[in-house]
Design a protein around this nucleic acid. Structure first.
Length: 781
DNA sequence: GAGCACTGC
């Protein structure tokens, strides 16, 4: 093996590093009560007990076991550039070096548990042959009995009675801990929910979680889906009137709330994963709290309504913000993870990650490695470097297999990370934040954390979305660390110093404080909460952000009058599972006779890109795209693709040939179908078509996107009509480098520049007449 | 002449 400028830890042998704390952390489970704490946003009155601090230690290991990443003889004379350090680097070559550590391959450690996506597979599989109902029922009951000992062995089982007692006696209970998945069954078993009193709703931020939990709990309860246990997510509902535990995505419960303002179907609402602080969980929490108050009041007046119980489940200790409710702490069963920090700050974390991976590979026992990076580009770069260097490994060393994963990757390639590596091969998963919460990969024992992530932001003052790389928070770092300790004790290599860790924010800024709120505000109004400024926010968004959302809704006609009351149009807009701008366009389409086309284009724009652009086949991909091109821009080009896709009858091979993402195209069809149904419900004919007059489609979009327009300047740049902001057409757009009088765009995001995406040519004359108040002071040539 | 993390209805 060749190394020039060998890069090495300088270094202590890992086996000599001592852990100062006692190892049997998993025995620390238990339940601890904490004093009642005060209202949120005003800060906590209660202090976590000593016991909790011990529990939090599960992930917050001391960072004093340090291995440096100092290297000598860097071969690159590199001035590294801050944004993309890896681009300027010459690739290192490895030299023959006898000091590399040989080790015995122990495959059992890698693959013992690595049976891919096991948790999902554990779910109930329907027998192929139809069985007699009695037989089926017996099977289900037998399965339930078989699972009983396992359930009783869970740490939380010992706390069962205590938790139930609290839920019985208190209106709201907050449960802090890693494992709370048993709670809904406990509530059901205790008779707190029933057909007469109402069911249990359990919300999840993600669809897959709702599905897999419902399947697992159905088994444990001894029922099949659609009976006592079911789930309800967009495009898929397995609940029924007899469902007593219903798993929903949080967005889905908000939808239910629009038609059942008091959630009378439910006796208990469980908000799971509340620590993630998604926009919808935050909003939902305020909503159910208000409902709880209303129902208690009705109950007092003897109106025959049951009180609503709220259970909030959160993995972190920041629970005081949630409310003045009872807080229970339950700790889960995670294995200890040893954390290493670098001695020196790393200027180039891609390089540091590369070194670390080989260091682990050559010196540490088998076990897969998970590397956190910021995005597709970095992942592809590191994958390439890994492959190059892996080819030069000495024949005695075991192999290394790089598996990239990020959301834009086609499903088939995503599946690779769940497949166990072949015997004698170590899997290195290169992931974005997707691996932090959304997916769990078996067999990971080592985590390499670069300490940064790409996050979406929103500048309310100028109204621009941004996407940029920021340091992660402490809780996010712990979450990444925890990914190494799911099956056995693990190791986490942080590519930053312990001092840097200490400077990180405690928690990630909740989504509600960094995104455009117009959609959320419309939902609040539609659910009966008129005073959105006075709403009970867990974290209050800035006034500028709230006002900007109100102004936008006002301009769209969703709210009106002096008091900003919801209009009839606004009520219709809230019905659609779309951003308010899209809803406006869709409703407007009946006046332009192009509803069919508009449904298609909205469906295309509201899913992730249908074009697949692998880095190495970029030329072929853009060549393939050329045949769909429409001269007026992206909206109609997308429409062309969908029409051709229909003609090809959704053939997957055809998609692959044309570099189209099958999953996203199939998703387009789902959305299209759903929007069609919603239109019928609102008496908008979904089949009205404008034929070949496609200008009508673009004019119709302008009714919602009048703010997203820009005019050409004498110097050839574009400047937005509202705000006079210079905007650049994104290279992925068909309008890239084109110069026309005026453009309309789907979104404006600041990354390295102000880029607009989803761009179409418009005539500047169309601008007069749409949303007049906006253009009163704007000069249109 | 240059590139968007993740999730949801």
């Amino acid at each position: 093996m060749i190394i020039t400028g060998r890069v090495i830890y300088n270094t202590q042998d890992f086996s000599q590093i001592k852990i100062t704390r006692t190892p049997p952390l998993h025995r620390l489970w238990g339940i601890v009560e904490v004093n009642e704490v005060g209202g949120y946003s005003g800060g906590a009155k209660g202090k976590p007990s000593q016991r909790i601090i011990q529990n939090s230690f599960l992930l917050n290991m001391p960072a004093n076991h340090i291995v440096s990443f100092n290297r000598r003889d860097r071969d690159d004379d590199a001035e590294w550039c801050h944004r993309r350090p890896h681009k300027k680097r010459k690739h290192k070559r490895f030299d023959e070096d006898s000091t590399l550590v040989k080790y015995k391959v122990d495959n059992t450690q890698t693959n013992g548990n690595g049976n891919g996506n096991g948790s999902v597979k554990r779910s109930c599989q329907k027998p192929r042959q139809a069985k007699k109902p009695n037989q089926q029922k017996e099977d289900l009951l037998a399965k339930r009995e078989a699972l009983r000992p396992f359930r009783r062995s869970l740490p939380i089982f010992s706390a069962r009675e205590h938790i139930l007692e609290q839920i019985r006696s208190k209106a709201t209970v907050i449960i802090v801990g890693e494992t709370g998945s048993e709670i809904p069954q406990y509530i059901l078993e205790a008779g707190l929910a029933s057909a007469q009193h109402g069911a249990i709703a359990v919300t999840q931020p993600r669809r897959v979680a709702a599905i897999s939990l419902a399947k697992r709990v159905a088994e444990e309860v001894g029922t099949s889906l659609r009976q006592k246990v079911g789930y309800s997510i967009r495009f898929d509902d397995t609940s029924s009137p007899s469902t007593l535990i219903k798993y929903l995505t949080d967005g889905m419960l908000i939808r239910e709330l629009l038609s059942d303002r008091l959630l009378l179907k439910y006796r208990v609402v469980v908000l799971d994963e509340a620590h993630e602080r998604t926009l919808r969980t935050d909003i939902l929490f305020g909503m159910v709290k208000a409902i709880q108050g209303q129902r208690a009041e009705m109950c007092r007046r003897g109106e025959g309504v049951h009180k609503l119980k709220i259970v909030v489940m959160s993995a972190t200790l920041d629970a005081e913000r949630f409310s003045d409710a009872k807080i229970l702490y339950v700790s889960g069963r995670l294995h200890p993870v040893r954390i290493y920090n670098t001695i020196e700050p790393q200027s180039d974390y891609i390089d540091a990650a590369l070194v670390t991976i080989f260091q682990i590979h050559l010196e540490q026992p088998m076990g897969d490695i998970l590397v956190f990076l910021t995005g597709q580009e970095e992942i592809e770069t590191l994958e390439k470097l890994l492959k190059e260097h892996a080819a030069t490994l000495p024949p005695t060393a075991s192999r290394i297999l790089a598996c990239p994963i990020f959301a834009a990757l086609p499903t088939a390639q995503q599946q690779r990370v769940f497949t166990p590596a072949p015997r004698g091969t170590r899997k290195v998963v290169l992931a974005t934040n997707i691996a932090e919460t959304s997916i769990t990969i078996q067999g990971i024992r080592y985590v390499v954390d670069c300490g940064v992530a790409k996050v979406r932001g929103f500048n309310a003052r100028i109204g621009i979305d941004s996407l940029s790389v920021h340091p992660i928070s402490k809780s996010s770092a712990r979450q990444r660390t925890g990914r190494a300790g799911r099956e056995a004790a693990g190791f986490c290599y942080r590519l930053y110093t312990a001092e840097t860790f200490n400077t990180l924010e405690k928690d990630t800024v909740p989504e509600i404080k960094r995104c455009n709120l117009s959609s959320a505000i419309l939902l609040l109004k539609a659910s009966g909460i008129e005073d959105v400024l006075g709403f009970d926010y867990m974290d209050r968004p800035s006034r500028a952000s709230l006002e900007r959302a109100l102004v936008q809704l006002y301009a769209l006609g969703a709210i009106g009058g002096d008091n900003g009351k919801l209009t009839d149009l606004g009520r219709q807009m809230a019905e659609f599972p779309l951003d308010p701008t899209f809803s406006k366009v869709l409703i407007q389409s009946q006046h332009h006779n192009c509803t069919a086309e508009v449904i298609s284009v909205i469906s295309l724009l509201s899913v992730d890109s249908i074009f697949y652009m692998p880095q190495d086949k970029r030329e072929q991909a853009s060549e393939a795209r050329r045949k769909f091109l429409h001269g007026d821009g992206d909206h109609l080009t997308l429409l062309n693709v969908l029409r051709e896709y229909d003609k090809a009858k959704g053939d997957r091979e055809w998609c692959r040939e044309n570099f189209l993402n099958v999953r996203n195209l199939e998703h387009v069809l789902d959305v299209q179908k759903q929007l069609t149904q919603f239109c019928i419900r609102l008496s908008i004919s979904p089949t009205t078509t404008c034929g070949s007059d496609l200008d009508a489609v673009l004019r119709c979009f302008l009714a919602g996107f009048f703010v997203n327009t820009a005019l050409i300047q004498p110097d050839g740049s574009y400047r937005s009509v509202v705000g006079q902001q210079t905007v650049n057409i994104h290279p992925s757009s068909t309008m890239f480098k084109k110069k026309v009088d005026a453009i309309m765009y789907n979104e404006l995001v600041f990354t390295t520049k102000e880029y607009v995406r989803g761009v179409s040519k418009i005539q500047s004359a169309w601008l007069t007449g749409v949303a007049p108040p906006y253009f009163n002071n704007v000069k249109i040539p």
